[in-house]
Amino acid sequence: MTAGKENVDSGIPLLTVENLQVEFDTYGGTVQAVRGVSFSVDQRQTLAIVGESGCGKSVTVQSIMGLIPTPPGRITAGSARLRGHETLGRSTVGGKQIRGAEIGMIFQDPMTSLNPTMTIGDQIAEPLQVHRGYSASDAFTEAIRLIELCKIPEAAKRARQYPFEFSGGMLQRAMIAMVLSCKPSVLIADEPTTALDVTIQAQILDLMQELQKETGMAIILITHDLGVVARMADEVAVMYAGKVVEYGSADDVFYHSAHPYTVGLKEAMPMNDPARQHVLKPIDGSPPDLFAPPAGCGYCPRCPYAMQICSERQPQGHNLHGHHFASCWLHHAKSGRKPETIFFKDAR
C-alpha cells in the first residue's frame, strides 16, 4: 500500500472522474447516456452512485473500466485519473493493467458474468496468471486461498466445481474472490446484491466491508437501494438523466437532501420508523428521453418545485457546505424560494 501513502501525502484522490460524457449511436439516433459526471473516491472510502434504471450509472463506471464498446459507444469528453494518471482510452497505468489489476469490477448477475464452461477455481486463477505471472498450479492454490477468504465453505472442493453448482450468493463471493486476486486499488460493484435475498445481501455487504478494511481498496457501489447506500456509503452521488444532481457525504445527502429528486426518492420509499410514518409519495412521470436531452434541468417535468428557468437552462452545481453539491436552481442566490423551507425539514 505504498502507493496509497503517496496519495494521502500528495492530496490527490485515488480516482477522480471529471466531466465525463458518453454517447451511443443507435438506429433511433444518438443517446447521450452520460452528460458530464464528476466525482472522486479515495482509499478506504466507499462512494455510492444511486439512481433509477437508465440514468447512466452503469455506463459511467463501464467507461472508467474501458468496457464501452466503440462503436456504437463514444466517450466524447472528460477524464478519469487514477493517482493523477489518465485512464480513459488507455489500458495500462504505470505499467499495470487498469482493467482487472488496478480496477476490479463485479456485476449484478453473477450467473451470466462467469464462464459456464470453466471451473470456479480456474476462473479465479486466470487473472493471477495473466496479470501477476503465476504458474498454473500456484495460481490454483492461490485461488483456493481466495475462495476461503471470501468465506465459501469447502474451498478446495468448490474450486473444482462449475458455476451452475453454485447458488447466487456463492457466485457473487466467487466473483469477489476473482477481483481480489489482483489486489485492485478500486473495486467497482455494479448492483452486486440486487439479485440476492436480504439475508444473503447482508452477508455480501459484510464481506465487502471486511475486505475493504483489510486491503484499503476504494469501493464504488452502484445501487438503486437507498437502504444499501445508507449501510455502505461514505460519499453519495445521486444521478438523474445522465448527470450527478446531488453529491456529498452520506449524512449530507440523507439528512440535508438538497435536490428535489433526492427528496422525491426518499418520500417514495417506506420508512420503518413509527415516529415518522408517511404516505408514500410517488414521483409522477418518467425520466426524459436522452435522445433529445432537455435544454433545462432533466428533472424539471417531474419536479414539484419547478420554476420557469428550470425548463430553459441547465442548473449549475451549487456548493452548499464542505463538499456537498446540488445542481438545482432553487439554490441560486436570486431564487425566490428558499430551499431550506422545502428540503431541510428532515434535518436532525
Partner: peptide, 24 residues
C-alpha cells in the same frame, strides 16, 4: 430477515450490530 433489511437511514445502519447469519 428483518435485521438484514437495510433501512434508508445512515445513522440506523452504521449503528446496527451485524445480524447476518451464515449459510443459505
Amino acid at each position: 430477515l428483518i435485521g438484514s433489511n437495510p433501512e434508508p437511514d445512515p445513522n440506523t445502519e452504521k449503528g446496527r450490530v451485524s445480524t447476518s447469519i451464515q449459510g443459505e
